[in-house]
Design a protein around this nucleic acid. Structure first.
Length: 607
RNA sequence: GCGCCCGUAGCUCAGCCGGAUAGAGCAACGGCCUUCUAAGCCGUGGGUCGGGGGUUCGAGUCCCUCCGGGCGCGCCA
């Protein structure tokens, strides 16, 4: 719980059952909370005072329809059923106990027992001035150590669209969590180990012997991989060498390791480039690849065996999970060691959990990976609990995402059916954005920067704005449109506000802090601004960035409506009104910028 | 066969522990620029929320069932 408002009423939380005495106008700065949290608490107190059992929740929610006020308490109906009384009468009793002086302008009972609250404009104005919503997210939260595993490309190949969702969704959630003051540890679980590296290293050595430089040979990783594969398939001697290299690699052979390091270095450099272009906060220090866990794997399997969790089956070491059995009682099998002695991703994922809990001190672990890995993650988490790698206190979360689809409804591919390279996709985005930008006053340099921010922002926003767990359809025209719920629309809304200040020659920081919410559009905008923290909280809890996108789009839309209805710099606007509307506009700009930053999307002054 | 996910306007999507006449955008149609960025705003039309049962004051939301689609299920990751 967190945020904007404060109130001494919170003390009553420690005195359950005791009626609330403090008049609301005495609200002072003791503890931050959102409007929703404040109203929930006040409603809960009123319900207790009305004799309703404590387990009945108030169910406070923002009203969907302006006719029903700003917030509504929906708990009266449920409570009435529980205590066996008339819901409308019970609502009356609750309202009689509600201490909303100075907060609400109107409280009404409607329908079967809804309690509709219209907030007081002066109160909203004061809140907005006292606690700018975009500036106080970290207030009052218990900081946690949270390990976030995202991106995790396979270093054998070039990054492709399959890595896009994990990378940008994970990065947005990471930024949201950090904004709340949590100790976030990024883990880029790259695929830098496994049999395919034998082949790649053999190929690299072959090319180095032909006086090729590693950087040059690996310039096009995709091409290099295909070449190695072809070589492997067609040349028996090469294939044998490759297999030999796998063994030497696993045995820690210095020469082979050196080549492996070289390969890894070049491949990682390629990832860094993509991250930078994408404005993703991952850096080399966050890389913790599969190879890191290699030494721990035999130890871990031995431990699973000793605990009686793993047993030999058809030559492999297998953990049978009764917890995940089908309805016929067949346990779910998880292989942790192959019959040839090799390990699998289950094994290194388990080692990763143990490391994250034991060494990194994670209280919460979030893994952003494809929805198709759901069963695997469930198996790994179940084993981790049983083996004691993670206690019940540690939250283990798989944050799955759906597949990126083309307009034909099938997985996104090139026209010829190949894998779409991420670098090419992103460059195309910038290229397309540069064609969409109309502003002729920008210099070539400015225009290039705007194109980059708009193009990359559009790709990210399109992805982030859809429900994470669903498949989503990739569509250039839609994401680069300035109409509707898109990145460019939000960036435009921001620049539009900045242009007001440019035109007026005013620095928002020097504005006199005074705000009056007279027109309905002004009040609606202020209320929306104050709900920023509620949204960010929810994104942090559920790892669902699309909620923030929806919020920012609503905010921008409300601003546009306000802007049409309420003149600011035009002739005949009273100075105080003008100042007030400038404050409101600036608050919107700051919130848009802060929100977009949490999504990893940049804004610009002009476009 | 077993399991997970999905089905909401022509299209792309929202819908917050069940809450009031199911919301946006695009597309269609009609308005609004001599004044703050019209890349905008205002309005109209458009729905058996896949079908059918059930739970209850109330179901797009929860349960069951059927239909349709996607994905996964011991030695790839």
């Amino acid at each position: 719980m967190r945020s904007l408002l404060f109130c001494c009423l919170c003390r009553s939380l420690h005195l359950p059952g005791r009626p609330l005495q403090s008049p609301a106008h005495q609200i002072t700065d003791v503890q931050f909370m959102t409007i929703r949290a404040l109203l929930t608490e006040l409603a809960q107190n009123a319900m207790l005072a009305a004799g309703i059992p404590a387990e009945c929740e108030p169910h406070v929610a923002p009203s969907k329809n302006p006719a029903f006020g700003d917030y509504q308490i929906n708990g009266a109906m449920g409570a009435a059923k529980k205590v066996g009384s008339n819901p409308r009468e019970l609502a009356q009793k609750i309202v009689a106990e509600l201490k909303l002086d100075g907060i609400a302008q109107k409280v009404e009972i409607a329908g079967p027992g809804f309690i509709n609250i219209s907030l007081d404009s002066a109160w909203l104005a004061k809140l907005l001035l006292d606690q700018p919503p975009y500036a106080s997210l970290a207030q009052g939260l218990e900081p946690q150590t949270i390990v976030v595993d995202y991106s995790g490309p396979n270093l054998a190949k070039e990054m492709h669209v399959g890595h896009l969702r994990s990378t940008i969704i994970g990065d947005a959630v990471v930024r949201v969590l950090e904004s709340q003051g949590h100790n976030v540890i990024r883990q880029n679980h790259v695929g830098d180990w496994g049999t395919q590296f034998g082949m790649l290293i053999a190929e690299l050595e072959a090319q180095l012997q032909q006086d090729e430089r590693a950087e040059l040979a690996l310039q096009d990783l995709e091409h290099f991989y295909q070449k190695a594969k072809k070589h492997f398939d067609e040349d028996q001697a090469f294939a044998d060498l490759a297999r030999q290299y796998v063994v030497r690699l696993q045995a820690g052979d210095a020469e082979v390791l050196k080549l492996w390091h070289k390969f890894r270095e070049v491949s990682l450099a390629h990832c860094e480039e993509i991250y930078e272009l994408l404005n993703v906060s991952l850096t080399p220090e966050h890389v913790r690849g599969e190879s890191f866990y290699n030494p721990d794997l035999p130890v871990l399997v031995e431990e699973l065996k000793n605990q009686g969790l793993a047993q030999e089956d058809q030559g492999a070491q297998v953990v049978f999970l009764q917890e995940l059995a089908d309805k016929n009682g067949n346990p779910s099998p998880v292989i942790v060691q192959k019959k040839d002695g090799g390990y699998l991703y289950s094994t290194s994922d388990l080692a990763a959990i143990r490391f994250r809990v034991g060494t990194l001190g994670a209280a919460r672990i979030m893994v952003f990976s494809d929805a198709r890995q759901a069963l695997h993650m469930q198996q790994v988490y179940t084993i981790a609990r049983k083996a004691g790698f993670a206690s019940e206190q540690v939250k283990l979360e798989h944050c799955p995402f759906g597949t990126m689809m083309g307009s034909d409804g099938k997985p996104f591919k090139t026209r010829t059916g190949g894998t779409v390279k991420l670098a090419e996709l992103l460059h195309e985005a910038v290229e397309r954005a540069s064609k969409v930008i109309q502003d002729t006053e920008l210099t070539a340099e400015e225009k290039a920067e705007v194109a980059r921010k708009v193009g990359i922002g559009a790709v990210k926003y399109a992805d982030l704005s859809k429900t994470r767990t669903l498949d989503y359809v990739f569509n250039w025209d839609q994401m680069l449109s300035f109409e509707g719920n898109t990145g460019p629309y939000l960036q435009y809304a921001y620049t539009r506000i900045r242009s007001i200040f440019r035109k007026a020659g005013i620095n928002p920081a020097e504005l006199e802090a005074q705000l009056q919410l007279v027109e309905p559009q002004e009040k609606a905008l202020a209320l929306k601004l104050l709900q920023y923290g509620e949204t960010v909280d929810q994104v942090a809890q559920e790892a669902m960035p699309h909620l923030l996108c929806t919020y920012l789009y609503d905010l921008a839309s409300l601003f546009m409506t306000f802007y049409e209805a309420c003149p600011i710099l035009k002739d005949g606007v009273d100075v105080e009104i003008r100042n007030s509307r400038l404050i409101l506009s600036d608050s919107v700009a700051q919130t848009l910028r802060a929100g977009l930053e949490l999504l990893g999307i940049e804004v610009m002054e002009k476009m």
